[in-house]
Design a protein around this nucleic acid. Structure first.
Lengths: 183, 183
DNA sequence: CAGTATACGGAGAGTTTCTCCGTTTAGCAA
DNA sequence: TTGCTAAACGGAGAAACTCTCCGTATACTG
């Protein structure tokens, strides 16, 4: 990539992160272009769709998700608490920008989506945590990581759209946690 | 209301139901106006916002929800099955049009929304079913109808956006059902 | 049947998305 | 250094959608 192209790419990603944080993931792309100091044409050449741009932004979130999953796997705390905390972190991470959870929910069902690869990261992180519980015989047997991603993703979407407080999210997650644990 | 105004109102509602079914609840309002054979100005005078129009459409769904709730309350079947069936019906009803579940999820947290009154109907229907279970001592105590609306609404949003099959929806609902039932 | 309040509808302004294409520039080779 | 060329730029503008204004038309009333 030419040096000027790389510079513009970086400027766009920085601007997009700012604008998405302030105005949500449905913010006008032209505003991002303006903030980055490039023309709309340049933005659209680097990122053909909104999803391509989101993909670039979201990349950095995944390391944090993985770290949280690792912490959950290695935790000595009681199963129920581990799961509750992991889900709360999961929701918080994918809800960083308004409209974000909805983007993940859509991409989760669509392998053609540019951010589908990020959904795979989410699924695998969940899988690691669930396996830890499965090994301990704590998990119901008829559930897989994808379904859990959807369930927790559903909570995140609703929480995002209705602007729920953390305590409301926690109590919804509590129901799912109990539903997942073998009794 | 003047007779011609009433005629146009009705034509718009009919056209909106058709267009929403075919193209989802984010379909262009101008297309609805065209289909109804009225100008955009007329549509916007009758329905100041998209939500006002959705409100008119959704009104007829609520009777069906109530009927399903009554059936659930009066059912002799095992608790678990009653709840599972009720939730499946609930999801199906609010998912009649693409984008519908998301509209409900947003309105559920916003008393200023024109369709908030419909969310209340949903909540009360859920409350009736939950009370039946509570009386039987089958329900966990720290949950209310609003939270259940959100949980099931989350499943509906994800299912709608990812175009999930009924069997996928059923297994997600199964986790929530188990989480809600007293063990 | 005339007068008036009400409703109609379409032109058009404002927004956002996305593209086309003439202009500019980075990187390279002589 | 200079000149060439492929790559990148950016803005004008088309297209899609939302929403309003206001001159025109029409339903009701007396």
């Amino acid at each position: 990539m030419r040096a000027d192209a790389q510079r513009n790419y970086d400027k766009i990603v920085v601007a997009a992160a700012e604008v998405f944080t302030q105005r949500g993931m449905d913010a006008p792309l032209d505003e991002i272009a303006t903030r980055a100091g490039v023309g709309p044409g340049t933005l659209y050449r680097h990122f053909a769709t909104r999803e391509d741009l989101i993909d670039a932004i979201v990349k950095s979130w995944m390391a944090q998700i993985d770290a949280a999953a690792t912490e959950a796997v290695e935790s000595e705390a009681p199963t129920r608490e581990v799961l509750q905390k992991w889900f709360a972190t999961y929701v918080a991470r994918i809800s960083r920008n308004r409209g974000g959870p909805s983007k993940f929910a859509t991409a989760m069902g669509n392998p053609a989506s540019p951010i589908y690869s990020k959904c795979e990261v989410l699924r695998l992180a969940n899988d690691r945590v669930l396996n830890r519980l499965r090994d301990a015989g704590a998990l119901r047997s008829d559930v897989n990581a994808l379904e859990v991603c959807r369930l927790i993703g559903g909570v995140a979407v609703v929480a995002d759209q209705a602007e729920l407080a953390d305590s409301d999210i926690a109590s919804m997650l509590g129901v799912i946690v109990d539903g997942l644990l073998q009794n």
